[in-house]
Design a protein around this nucleic acid. Structure first.
Lengths: 269, 269
DNA sequence: CGGCAGAATTGACATGGATCAAAGGCCGAT
DNA sequence: ATCGGCCTTTGATCCATGTCAATTCTGCCG
């Protein structure tokens, strides 16, 4: 059957993106960078690249400070599985840089990736005792971890936080429904077109270049996100190439040559 | 292609469930039953069957009263489309009885049903200006409508309300991910088993009988929910019948003869 | 009680995408 | 610069599910 993953859970070794180095050897979380300890960096949030995209945005300085007191910044190497479905949800995690995939597994190894997360995205559900998905770093990744209980307590006191999480959850829900439409009713060609456009738009919203679309994940990940196989992903990409709709620049960058037509395809004509 | 719906948007006339009668002729919303006007029914919420399952649960009497002032109870006939994707989201709707399907359409009529809603479920996203899906009554349905803006304003003042919505959104999100796994990676047999068990569990949570599973929706709706065709739904049901895992009692009730085995199937062995 | 219309089922056949298998190409390591 | 392993691409074939086309069933109405 399709969509199986080699080892039912563990890391897929190395990965692409950044030099990665010895990632497979080091533990999922590296030593927290000094945070409140280092007097020069009393405000790690001040220098956070992801802040304007995060739940932290729009909070007062005082509120940010209270959040910062809970924060444990960390780095996760590409390929590391750092959340496992069913595991007790001790931490909530805010992604500051890099790319993460979240996924669910069937006992026989079939895998569905339910999302790719980027800077500013939030992992974990405040009111759930257990994680409902697993998460693996696609590239090296920087995160802020919050103890869930402390975060929940803080939510009582910072009303903006709860509202922000609700807004975020609403958007994710809308996107999940879009993905259900894709998975249930779109053809391979439509799926790939939707995927490329989605990544492009996402990059734009983050203020990154949106035309040579960056694909930090491998074909297998794309397949498991779209409900296809790597072979079909590959064939469909070459088909789009042949039709002059895209051009590959290396295997991890796609130039969109006819965005209008791609949109038409992704919408099912 | 599969999953097309006859008319790209409108009601599919009649429907099953209740006598339905002249539903196709009447407008989507019947006249609001008197609410604050009728001195005998000053508290419509008091008599609401869905309350303990709704966002309204756990609010104080005073808070319920403030909500009640916003409420416009209404009845919707089976087959009526009462929310259309993209339409300005004027109302939020709480479902008090009956069954509703929410769905998204592709321009050529392919349809993905993203959920079946029952009593206590909530339609509409507080912070979105437009609906992101369409909704159609599967059976006759009773609802409470809230003007979105007023509801949002009230949310500022009733902290429990926001938290309840966040909890609810989190659960829906988890369920959406489960459905993505189903749509992307499960076989027809696994999909049908999951679907039957899901309905059964849902009924149980609502305090309704969970064994002869009630199927208020038609085969086409089941197909559009599972990313299949009516023919495959039908064939798969007969296959499960042949294997002594279920027995049909009429076309709208399914007896689960071997729940353990069905669970094994739904989990992909 | 018999007749109808829509829904469900069943059958025959077609096909998109999966599976199995083999190159080919990219990238970090040497 | 060269090498080796993994990822990607391509090819050949298969199969689960879709499509097309009749029946058959079910519940409603006269």
């Amino acid at each position: 059957m399709h969509g199986r993953v080699a080892a039912p859970t563990r890391m897929s070794a190395e990965a692409r993106g950044t030099p990665a180095g010895d990632s497979a050897a080091r533990p999922a979380f590296s030593e927290p960078r000094t945070c409140h300890a280092d007097p020069a960096v009393l405000e790690p949030c001040e220098s956070c690249h992801a802040r304007c995209h995060s739940v932290c945005a729009g909070l007062s300085v005082e509120e940010i400070n209270r959040l910062a007191l809970l924060t444990q910044p960390a780095t996760i190497g590409a390929g590391q599985t750092f959340i496992s479905e069913g595991e007790s949800a001790v931490h909530l995690i805010n992604l500051n840089s890099g790319c993460v995939k979240i996924f669910k597994l069937l006992p026989d190894g079939r895998r569905q990736i339910t999302g790719f997360l980027f800077q500013g995205d939030f992992l974990g559900i405040p009111f759930n005792e257990a994680y409902v998905y697993s998460a693996e770093a696609v590239t090296d990744v920087q995160v802020c971890r919050f103890p869930r209980r402390a975060f929940n307590a803080l939510m009582e006191e910072i009303p903006g936080l709860e509202k922000r999480l609700l807004t975020r959850a609403s958007n994710e829900l809308a996107q999940a429904q879009e993905q259900m439409l894709l998975l249930g009713r779109k053809t391979a060609r439509e799926k790939i077109a939707s995927f490329l456009l989605g990544l492009s738009e996402r990059a734009r919203r983050l203020g990154l270049p949106d035309d040579p679309v960056d694909l930090p994940m491998g074909r297998a990940d794309i397949a498991d996100y779209l409900g296809l196989t790597t072979e079909t992903v590959s064939r469909t990409l070459t088909q789009l190439k042949r039709d002059q709709l895209i051009r590959m620049e290396g295997t991890a960058h796609v130039r969109l040559l006819d965005r209008a037509e791609l949109i038409a395809i992704s919408d099912g004509e």
